[in-house]
Design a protein around this nucleic acid. Structure first.
Length: 787
DNA sequence: TCAGCTCACACTTTTGAATAGC
DNA sequence: AGCTATTCAAAAGTGTGAGCTG
């Protein structure tokens, strides 16, 4: 099924520490997937960017982070789709996801409140096209779009609340409208994405911290389309989605019925013509040419059989449908009030508490609706498409049980992984960063077996390392002990943590060197490294045992003709005075040439990308490109034999695919050190996760290439708090929580939750147009309520 | 010319107000 | 009067296919 292999470019941002940690369901402890490079990066960061001091953990806030788990309830359905190659329709008005994200949470502190977020990150920097029955990368990704996060309507809610029901994000909508004002998640068509769910402990809506858990389910990866490309997907959707019931074989909107209607219409038109021409009614003879799938005789037969009520096509007959057709003009659809309007305020930042309270009634409704909807599970899916082909390879032994049987290996941030991101810690999650106890523990672990990076490499990235040391490692193993549950270590960063590939990477010239480093990295060469003492390599559970095709994204052919060299390095830029010319090509996304440098340190603000040529820009800053380039073979390996056109010969030793946090980190670690400034914070205090500075380089537009996705939120900007909710209890957040940090604004939308006075439903993250501020980058909210 | 997108369509499910019954 | 169950119309979600666009 889907897995990292399917999306070679899938690399969670380095800042997404939580994504870089994986805790197997049976693993007693968290696994730090983040490489030691994180620490190095943290060291290199200026003190100003350091994460705020660890928030004094309160007894009540000490949640059993280690036990927080999330299960994808409808995993089997997702796997059905992913086995074929999940496609998600995106429309201008917004389209829901199907299958929806339905999960179960456990391990939360029942008395604490949590915020659940959904964001969708690109898996790579490629654009795809459906050709020859498969998906092929045909070019670079589109420019980045405003990052948006969907906050679960129930947020914040107690752990008991979340654990007591199925959590559904079915309200989230996807759109390709870059000017969307409904708060939908904006995506590019023909791109690959990976949804992620974040559980953030929240003392109150304005005080996030105490830990974050991010969950990624590889089977939920999908390709965005405006029209389905793969017929199998269409059939699956029709079979599984109740709203599409009409298109089923026995539905009233089935092909037969539609053909019959069409015939009737044609007949009617013909009759009309006959009337005009005073021609006898013999429209049957005037039937149009048969369709490719239906002959005229069939159509007529269908019309006659399926529409017995149809009057004899006599003169003057007007099928009822004609009338209906006229009467059922599609009315203008009202705005979705439930969706907060934000687009017009993208330049603003703010949280409107008052508005949210005013919306209480509606919030209640929304909430109730939500619960209802949550209760409404997706229809039992009876697939006409045996999981065989794809499934057999993707989820060999994974039973399609109700709950997810998918192995719970965390997926690194797609984009981030591709780049040597580890070095660049997130800027924006001070509070969260500081409160992840597990990080410390992980940091204390031995460098090899306990380092997050190592673990992640071992489990998350089935793709074989560049070296011949190991065979491709399936990301997911159905027999993996962690199956069904994706467990991540609490993140020190927020869901908005940048995940793009903008992270510093060795110069393009060093790509080969990077790969070499990666291949030679001791950790990388040990893909089978046990996870925190847990032997995962034994038996069939070992990723190594997985066949290369085991976790493939069906029909995705890595044929991007223009492999992008390793891109520019944020780290470099960050740590070094801007050079006239970047050592590496800048990402083309988002017009790298026109970056705003609001919150960037003075020396960084001077950085100019104008010299980057389009091609260079296209080459992108993504390691993804690197990963893409290198991963092509591995990707091909992931394809089912039936759809896989890539030379099989490449499978045995596919180039290393730096899609893993480890890979990037490792490469970075080795190559970057010389370039690290001495002012980087000392990561010692904690693991790479906790050591992450609160400053997120990704938040700097100029360092945040469009393609590399960088979800980000500013939730606790000190200067905003008073405006946001002066009436809130004077629970002055710890200084650390609101420590200055550059970042993107957090946009809070109308809160459908009735019980909450906090009006937010969506978080909006703006990459650009930020305003410089002494305390960090943020958008001008202008005291205007956002919702 | 064509891939990709938009829109209207018909159908279905969901939603919530109105109504009836207890 | 208050509560619950039922009914029904409107709203919303779905894939399809024609037409448009670059």
């Amino acid at each position: 099924m889907l897995s990292v292999e399917m999306y070679p470019g899938l690399t969670l941002g380095p800042q997404r520490i939580g994504d870089c940690f994986y805790r197997d369901r049976e693993a007693p402890a968290h696994m730090s997937l983040f490489p030691p490079a994180c620490d190095m990066a943290a060291k290199a960061l200026p003190p100003r960017l350091l994460a705020p001091p660890t928030i004094p953990s309160e007894p009540a806030t000490k949640t059993p982070k280690d036990d927080v788990r999330m299960e994808l309830e409808n995993s089997s359905l997702w796997k059905q789709f992913s086995s074929v190659g999940t496609e998600m329709i995106i429309t201008k008005k917004g389209r829901r996801m199907f299958p929806g994200l339905r999960m179960k949470l456990s391990g939360l502190n029942p008395s604490l409140r949590y915020i659940l977020l959904l964001d969708i990150v690109p898996l790579d920097n490629s654009r795809y096209r459906f050709q020859g029955g498969g998906w092929q990368a045909v070019g670079g990704a589109e420019a980045r779009l405003p990052d948006r996060v969907f906050i679960h309507p129930d947020s914040p809610a107690t752990g008991a609340h979340w654990q007591g029901r199925t959590i559904s994000f079915h309200y989230a909508k996807l759109t390709n409208n870059t000017l969307d004002s409904q708060g939908h998640i904006i995506l590019h068509s023909l791109h690959r994405y990976q949804p992620r769910v974040h559980v953030i402990e929240a003392r109150d809506v304005l005080r996030w911290g105490g830990g974050q858990h991010s969950f990624v389910f590889p089977e939920t990866q999908f390709l965005t389309v405006t029209a389905y490309q793969n017929n199998k997907i269409t059939e699956l959707k029709i079979s599984a989605n109740p709203f599409a019931k009409g298109f089923r074989e026995d539905g009233m909107n089935s092909k037969k019925q539609r053909d019959a209607r069409q015939k009737r219409k044609i007949s009617d038109l013909t009759e009309t013509l006959d009337i005009v021409n005073c021609d006898p009614c013999d429209s049957a003879e005037l039937l149009p040419l048969p369709t490719s799938s239906t002959t005229a005789a069939d159509l007529q037969a269908l019309a006659l059989s399926s529409l017995p009520q149809l009057a004899d096509p006599s003169c003057g007959y007007r099928p009822q449908e004609v009338t209906r057709y006229q009467d059922t003009l599609v009315p203008e659809q009202p705005l979705d009030l439930g969706q907060a309007f934000m687009a017009s305020q993208m330049s603003d930042i703010g949280i409107s508490m008052a508005n949210g309270m005013q919306d209480a009634p509606r919030s209640e409704v929304a909430n109730s609706i939500n619960e209802r909807s949550d209760a409404m599970g997706e229809p039992a899916y009876t697939s006409n498409f045996p999981p065989a082909q794809a499934n057999s390879s993707s989820f060999p032994s994974a039973p399609l049980s109700h709950s997810s049987s998918f192995s719970s290996l965390p997926i690194p941030d797609p984009l981030a992984t591709s780049a040597p991101q580890p070095s660049i810690p997130p800027f924006d999650y001070p509070s969260i960063l500081s409160s992840s106890p597990t990080l410390h523990s992980s940091s204390s672990s031995s460098p090899v077996s306990t380092t997050p990076s190592l673990q992640q490499t071992t489990f998350t990235f089935p793709t074989p390392p560049p070296s011949n040391s190991s065979s491709p490692q399936p990301l997911l193993s159905s027999s993996s002990p962690s199956a069904n549950t994706y467990h991540t270590i609490p993140e020190t960063i927020g869901p908005h943590t940048p995940t793009d590939a903008s992270f510093p990477a060795p110069s393009s010239a060093c790509q080969s060197g990077l790969q070499h480093q990666i291949s030679t990295h001791p950790v990388l060469t040990q893909p089978s490294q046990p996870l925190q003492g847990e032997g995962i390599s034994s038996g069939n559970n070992s990723p190594n045992d997985q066949s290369p095709a085991a976790f493939i994204y069906p029909n995705i052919l890595p044929t991007n003709p223009d492999p992008v060299p390793i891109a520019a390095q944020l780290l470099f830029n960050h740590n070094q005075p801007p050079a006239p010319t970047l050592p590496c090509p800048l990402p083309s996304h988002g017009g790298a040439t026109s970056f705003a440098f609001p919150s960037v340190p003075p020396h960084m603000q001077n950085l100019s990308f104008t010299n980057v040529s389009p091609s260079q820009a296209h080459a992108g800053l993504h390691l993804q490109n690197l990963s893409h380039q290198a991963s092509a073979p591995s990707l091909a390996a992931a394809f089912p034999p039936s759809s896989f056109s890539y030379p099989p010969s490449s499978l045995p030793h596919p180039p290393f695919q730096p899609s893993s946090c480890l890979a990037v980190s490792s490469s970075f670690q080795q190559s970057a050190p010389p370039t690290y400034p001495q002012n980087f914070p000392n990561p010692h205090a904690s693991s790479c996760t906790s050591s992450y500075p609160s400053v997120d380089i990704g938040s700097m537009p100029q360092f945040n290439p469009p393609a590399p996705y960088r979800p980000e939120m500013v939730l606790h900007h000190p200067s905003l708090l008073p405006q946001l909710d002066p009436s809130l209890p004077s629970s002055t957040p710890p200084p650390a929580l609101y420590q200055t940090f550059p970042s993107y604004p957090l946009r809070l939308c109308q809160d459908p939750h009735s019980s909450l006075s906090i009006p937010f439903r969506h978080l909006y993250r703006q990459h650009q147009h930020g305003h410089a501020h002494p305390q960090g980058s943020y958008l001008d909210m202008g005291a205007r309520p956002v919702f």
